[in-house]
Amino acid sequence: MVETIQVDDVRKRYGDVAAVDGVSFAVREGEFFGILGPNGAGKTTTLEIIEGLRKADSGSVRVFGESPWPRNPALLPRIGVQLQASSFFERLTAREQIRTFAALYGVGPARADEMLEEVGLTEKANTRSEKLSGGQMQRLSIALALVHDPELVFLDEPTAALDPQARRNLWDLLRRINSTGRTVVLSTHYLDEAEALCDRVAIMDHGRVLELGAPAALVRGLAAPTRVSVVSGALPVEEARTIQSGAAVDDDGVSLTIATTEPGPVLAALAERDALHGLSVRGATLEDVFLHLTGREYRA
């Protein structure tokens, strides 16, 4: 079977900087695939090469088994690309924007209005795009990418600069897009977003893929300790140290945290002492994976 996207040892340099430095991965049909990394990791350039906007210096890219470069008219109707929020025609309303894009693909106005409904913008149909809120703009730009019903959708940092509430709303929409069988490729610099949405994640830094796999598998592979926290002073630090040998105990004045690879007995011991006030249990996250891979804190 042909993979939806096949990328082999792709390289791209801008002057002295290797923006993409030997990237290889494959995306399967129907998959929600994430490219995760801090700004400047090479995510956008990688996406642009796959979309056919840029030519790779070397390596090969196949989308549906075909080369996207030079501009491949056979591929264009099959892929949908969401660009940053500002990629709208000036002074047109939301409905006019989506109808214009629909017409470019030979899609009628009825389907365009349907798409607007699908992203929950029917009420804003007559509002000019520049008057929409950040989240509404993002939803409109996703609608523009989906209006011709593509099999493969690229989303470039769709939740950047959104408030947490708007991000959560958008996540629901992104899950729906994928649940209808579309292949989705998402670039993001939010670790929690990749963890929440993606079937598989490629972690990129300095133009290379550091690790690739399901977020849960990556985290588990790390064998990082689970952090059990209760409110500071729930029990004395000295006593906490005696609960499990080898577990690191720290009280920062707000929380008392015990880092352990076996959280079960720790929780039981805390319950016994009636010291579960303000309990939180946090497993390792992709953040820890990133820290482990690069030796530095993750900074978006």
Binding site: L53, P73, L76, L83, F101
Partner: peptide, 10 residues
């Protein structure tokens, strides 16, 4: 980026 978006359309 409208030009870029148009380039990705037919």
């Amino acid at each position: 980026r409208i030009l870029r978006r148009l380039r990705l359309s037919p």
